[in-house]
Amino acid sequence: MAAAALLSIYVALFFGSYPLTAGAIHEALASWFHGGADTQAMVIVRDIRLGRVLLSFLTGSALAVSGAVFQGLLRNPLADPFTLGISSGAACAAALALALGWTLPGLSTLPLVALTGAFAAMFMVLALSRLAGGFSRENLVLAGIVVSTFLGAIIALIKSLNEESVSAIVFWILGSFQGRGFEHVQLMLPYLVPGMALVLGFARELDILALGAEQAVQVGVAVARVRIALLIGAGMLTAAAVCVSGIIGFVGLVVPHLVRMLMGPESRPMLLFSALGGGVLLLWSDVMARTILHHGAELPVGVVTALFGAPFFCLIMARGRRT
């Protein structure tokens, strides 16, 4: 799987609007390692394609892992940052910060604001669901729809009041990696790395929570603390993904399900393979998004993931009803 991930990153470098031969790409990679004069091919491969490929991979990993954590934690197979409205929360806060021109001295404002938005939305959805009587799959998904629709409307409102172009709204609502690269990888890493560490560190506890809170306490899990740690970890991963890519749906839903079907439910391998699988999936979705249209035009990558993700969502929903 790790080999498939590396191979995907490599092969994806071949796709792009500017035609490059394999030789040119290898030369560009080699000269990057050895140091050499900047050729046009090298600039394209290094500054444009590699950055974007890595960014889409890491974003996919973050989304898939946070989806896996939400599903395990809420014991709800339909949970993921998108269906729970958490991505919308992060995107809404980020849009607000951009529109109002907020900046925090000495810090990258956008991810921090996205994180705040993610937590606010998470809190809203959980509170709404609890108000409706508990964390059943219907309640959570309904609460998620309400919150994400509401926040989506706010995003649209902010953007139209701000008189910016329609494409900027589309960026946040449908998600895209257009024009993104290494500086965005640097932007997300301070949230991606601790988020992953937190979530993987509590993987065993996540397994035991499948027993239910009460029995988890009885075998020694500090349930409240573990839940908060996992929610913070998954929230950080969501915020990391959203602040560089907008709202990309279904990666966090589809990947953990496929991985669980292949590998069983044990959390630590499941999370690791979700990270790899989510990375590969979003990377190829992005390759499709930027190559499927002619004349260098791009689809938002969220369109691609929704096209295959939504039917999958229905499948899980139907399966859950049967059992």
Binding site: A210, Q218, G220, V221
Partner: peptide, 27 residues
């Protein structure tokens, strides 16, 4: 005591078992 400390002193078999579908018995 922490939950862990209590769990070293005392084990509990509950009345109802949760739905554990795909979990392996050994785990």
């Amino acid at each position: 005591l922490s939950a862990r400390g209590r769990a070293r002193l005392c084990a509990t078999v509950a009345q109802k078992n949760p739905d554990l579908s795909a979990l392996q018995v050994l785990s």
